[in-house]
Design a protein around this nucleic acid. Sequence first.
DNA 1: TGTACATCAGTGAACGCGCGTTCACTGATGTAC
DNA 2: TGTACATCAGTGAACGCGCGTTCACTGATGTAC
Lengths: 201, 201
Amino acid sequence: MERPYHHGNLRSALIAEGVRLARAGGPAAVTIRDLARATGVSPSAAYRHFPDVDHILAEISRTARQELATAMIDACRAVPGTGDAARDALSEFAAMGEAYIRYGIAESNMFDTAFVPCEAQPDEPESPSAWEVLCRALDDLVEVGLLSAERRVDAPLIAWATVHGMASILSRRAIPDTSSDEQATWAAVSAVQRALELPGE
Amino acid sequence: MERPYHHGNLRSALIAEGVRLARAGGPAAVTIRDLARATGVSPSAAYRHFPDVDHILAEISRTARQELATAMIDACRAVPGTGDAARDALSEFAAMGEAYIRYGIAESNMFDTAFVPCEAQPDEPESPSAWEVLCRALDDLVEVGLLSAERRVDAPLIAWATVHGMASILSRRAIPDTSSDEQATWAAVSAVQRALELPGE
DNA sequence: TGTACATCAGTGAACGCGCGTTCACTGATGTAC
DNA sequence: TGTACATCAGTGAACGCGCGTTCACTGATGTAC
């Protein structure tokens, strides 16, 4: 079967292959020429759909951030409900933190890609957004009375920094600590709980 | 005045110029050819002193980590003593955390360089080492009775992750939070204090 | 329904760039006698 | 103290590579009449 002259869906195909490249080799592995090879098209064809390589990378980076947010949402949904709203909100919040770190470790190249500095902006903002997911979970904790309004102010920043820092450290093996990934993940999650003055489990 | 045929100190000059390049443009800006231009030498001269560019980058990265550790030590020393050992240990610990984040913001390219993934190993380990500096500060907190032995176990990991995460976020402007850098820095430092169950100021 | 033609999405060759690295070499240095 | 010579630290030209991007082009598609 002959490849048709018109690809039909080159724009999405370029992004999809770009995600594959980024997953395997990080943001630096995303090149026009590899993209063209992977989609079976000449390098110049990409310029029908994007002004330059940076705009393709911006879309791939957005996809990475969406994957991260989706991992958090999935982990949240996987928490079995107990009927106790407060208890559930707490478990869900913890599950999301764990999911963030696990994603950083398991998909370290995509994790790097998600936060790569990039001149171009994606066409539309990421959806779902991990930041919004986090903020909603914190609102839940306020609602069930576990998080004070005062602590709520800095809470997203604190939670994100802790969990993001741990994910970075573990995914790069940047630190001479000898804990297992599981220990370290739990250490970060419980550190956030204490920092936000949430009741322990 | 003629440049002499022999440079005399090319190895250190390459590292010093490499640090300038990295400070201005991050690890990707460190190239053999720019290094040669900056030191006034032909590109191949570098190969008398390093097997490849990655080994030069490893030395520059080590320098960046040493700068970070030095910033922490300096901040620690700048804390005026009160005669109250416990109080001083606490202030010094906080000052070190602030210094870490401030370095990450002020020297974001060097901060990236410090943690760049690098095949090659530096000739000798960094000295001072930020990790050791952190561990010593935590030992001080144990000694004055502010940090429990139990909390001491995960403490370096927790402290590093929080402060490293906040430095990464702020230096990349990765997050849609609107706090000032100072607010965010303090939020991270005080989050560590609560996570380690240290008494507040 | 058939056909001319505008529009769109590709091709492929080429440009210029900067990179890391190699290699035969040369100029300077220092050491043995 | 002077000199032959080994050693060291540079030079500069070249190689091959892969990159992003441009440009004149061509094949396919769809629309107006």
